[in-house]
Computed example of a mutant assay.
Amino acid sequence: MKKLALIFICTLCFGFAQAQNDNWAVGFKLGEPTGVNIRKYFNNINAIDVTIGTYGMLKESYRNDKVRPNVGLSVQVHYLWHTPLFNSESVHVYYGLGGQVNSRSYTKRNEKTNGAVSLGGSAIGGVEYFIPNNRISVFLEGGTYVEVIPAPFFFSPNISGGIRFNL
């Protein structure tokens, strides 16, 4: 009976250690954008990734004007496809498409501060390393944001890295 209980507990622990991308992950992303990152895995192929935080720290121009760097609130959502890299359970690559909503203020040259709520599409790609026998993963990703409203075709690169705790 003790052996059966031990086998059951070991199987559960091994299952949890290997099932790092089966449910939810919560973490922090630093870069563009910076903020809290939440990921919901649906299966071994798809996930939804949401980042809530700040945007605009790396850009010094907006809408063809030099601006004072002002950060604002950002919500970024992506639908992701992910797959193990070289059949490794520890390293996954992913890519996805989604959108981004930003609210920030900017100051034109020697003028008053203007507010802007912007909406646009975004795409990302990245690599994530799941630390073996641990619930922590680290990631590095890059992508682009293309604004639709109010400055059509305003282009901004998104580069960030972070850490997630896989629930």
Results as ranks from 00 to 15, higher is better:
Thr107Met: 08
Val36Ala: 13
Gly98Ser: 05
Gly115Cys: 00
Gly120Ser: 00
Tyr106Asn: 02
Trp24His: 07
Ala25Leu: 03
Pro33Gln: 03
Leu80Arg: 02
Gln20Ser: 10
Asn110Thr: 09
Ser118Leu: 04
Asn102Phe: 04
Phe28Met: 11
Met57Ala: 15
Gln18Lys: 12
His92Met: 04
His78Asp: 13
Gly96His: 01
Trp81Gly: 15
Ile38Gln: 02
Tyr94Lys: 00
Gly35Phe: 01
Asn114Ser: 11
Val91Tyr: 08
Asn114Arg: 13
Ser103Asp: 09
Ser118Ala: 08
Phe14His: 09
Lys29Ile: 06
Ile52Thr: 05
Ser105Phe: 11
Thr83Ala: 12
Val26Trp: 05
Thr107Ser: 13
Val71His: 05
Asn70Ser: 13
Asp49Cys: 03
Ser118Tyr: 02
Thr113Phe: 09
Gly115Thr: 06
Tyr55Asp: 06
Gly31Arg: 02
Ile52Trp: 03
Ala17Pro: 00
Tyr106Leu: 02
Leu30Cys: 06
Lys108Ala: 15
Gly99Tyr: 03
Tyr106Met: 00
Gln20Asp: 08
Asn21Trp: 01
Gly99Gln: 06
Lys108Gly: 15
Val77Ala: 14
Ser118Val: 04
Pro69Leu: 11
Lys66Met: 08
Asn23His: 15
Thr34Trp: 03
Asp49Ala: 02
Tyr62Val: 12
Gly98Lys: 01
Asn37Cys: 05
Ser105His: 12
Val75His: 01
Trp24Phe: 14
Gly72Met: 09
Asn44Glu: 14
Asn87Thr: 09
Tyr106Asp: 01
Asn110Ala: 13
Gly120Trp: 01
Gln18Asn: 12
Phe42His: 02
Phe28Asp: 02
Gln18Ile: 06
Gly56Thr: 06
Gly31Cys: 05
Glu89Tyr: 07
Ala25Pro: 00
Gly115Ile: 00
Ile48Leu: 13
Val77Pro: 00
His78Trp: 06
Val101Arg: 07
His82Leu: 01
Tyr62Gly: 10
Asn44Phe: 09
Thr54Glu: 07
